[in-house]
């Protein structure tokens, strides 16, 4: 170590003020950097959805009318990978809470809201990246996505992922240093949500109570919208409902997330 460098480049005296957008950009950039430095890490969170695809796909009967079962199944798997990635992301924050780096960001002048918004926005990147990879992997097996629909589908998925990420971070903030609590709640919620959204099997033929719960699950609308969009159905009520569901989840997530961060 040598002498402390003179703070030529550092602001002296009056601290510089930053805007909410700048704060969010700083947090977003910081969160994204490890993903960009190691894009291969995306592949790992995808392994599970791909297993579902490989081991479930062949069991599905072909849709009457000649459509491939993949046409129905792949959009569900894409939402599933979004669900896995988005809901587990809070564990990264929890780890940073344990090591002390979260505390460091709390002492910085970054706005509390930017800490959650920037982190949650970053979820869009791995989610869209994974979705694109799943599409690329299934096209050779006969999946035929509609291009325009897929683009809108990924957009809705990104918005939904922001909300999921925000909820996951909220859960991390609420569980504090109890890692088991984070995972217990995440696991308890994710599978019912997934199954009740008709992600793997249609719920339409299920008992009445199941259909009611399915209707209350915002994920159902997202999954239905993704199926419609990837199938080329762009302007429909199903798509609109999916978009609204994603926006509501994102809005609520960021709201509770910001409140949790303010209390942290």
């Amino acid at each position: 170590m040598s002498a402390v460098p003179s703070p030529l480049n550092a602001p002296k005296g009056r601290p510089m003020s930053t805007s909410m957008v700048m704060d969010t950009a700083v947090v977003f950039g910081r969160e994204l950097r490890p993903v960009l430095r190691n894009p291969f890490s995306l592949v790992f969170t995808m392994v599970q959805p791909l297993f579902f695809l490989a081991l479930f796909g062949p069991l599905l009967p072909d849709v009457p009318g000649g459509g491939s079962a993949l046409q129905w199944f792949v959009p569900g798997i894409i939402v599933m990978s979004c669900l896995f990635a988005g809901s587990t992301t809070g564990s990264n924050l929890q780890f940073e809470m344990q090591t002390g780096s979260h505390e460091r960001t709390l002492v910085s002048p970054l706005r509390r809201s930017a800490l959650i918004v920037g982190r949650s926005l970053k979820e869009i990147v791995p989610i869209v990246g994974q979705a694109a990879l799943i599409v690329a992997a299934t096209v050779p097996f006969g999946f035929r996505p509609h291009l325009g629909g897929a683009v809108v589908g990924l957009l809705i998925l990104g918005v939904f992922g922001v909300g999921l990420g925000a909820f996951s971070y909220t859960l991390a903030l609420a569980s504090k240093d109890q890692e088991w609590m984070f995972w217990a709640i995440q696991q308890t919620l994710i599978f019912p949500l997934m199954l009740l959204a008709g992600m793997l099997l249609p719920v339409d033929d299920g008992p009445g109570w199941m259909q009611v719960l399915s209707k209350l699950n915002p994920l159902t609308y997202v999954v239905d919208a993704e199926r419609a969009l990837f199938g080329g159905e762009l302007a429909s009520a199903t798509v609109a409902q999916g978009a609204v569901a994603a926006l509501v989840v994102a809005g609520l997530g960021l709201l509770v997330g910001t409140r949790a961060m303010r209390r942290a």
Binding site: N9, A10, P11, P15, M16, S17, T18, M22, D23, V26, G29, R30, R33, P34, R37, N92, F95, E96, Q98, T99, G100, S101, E103, R104, T105, V107, S108, P109, L110
Partner: peptide, 27 residues
């Protein structure tokens, strides 16, 4: 503030953390 724990996140590179820390303070 230099806390009792590690300010730099374990999943990041040191230089990246330093730069984003500087950005957080408006540099």
């Amino acid at each position: 503030y230099i806390g009792q724990g590690n300010g730099a996140a374990h999943s990041q590179r040191g230089r990246d953390e330093l730069v984003s820390q500087g950005r957080a303070y408006g540099l």
